[in-house]
Amino acid sequence: MAGVPSDLEREQIFSMAEKEMEYRVEMFNKLTHTCFKKCVENKYKDSELNMGENSCIDRCVSKYWQVTNLVGTLLGNTRPIPVNDAAP
């Protein structure tokens, strides 16, 4: 891959970058909806998130992230998941 990439290679790089971003957006959206369902009471007695909901959300995001990494490992996946690892 050293040297100037060909047009085809550049197209492939773009296309891969696009897929990866779509993947991340979709992951973010699924995470958001899943944690909303798990953590936020759905009677909507209030328009603020209370303390319990807030900490539930933080932990939910953290656990979702871990599940993503765990499943990624099972799939033998080294790529779609970010370079930096999640906090332990």
Partner: peptide, 13 residues
């Protein structure tokens, strides 16, 4: 609530 939730998730993410 959803918007606040979504922002919080964005920060953690």
């Amino acid at each position: 609530k959803f918007l606040k939730h979504s922002m919080r998730v964005g920060l953690r993410f």
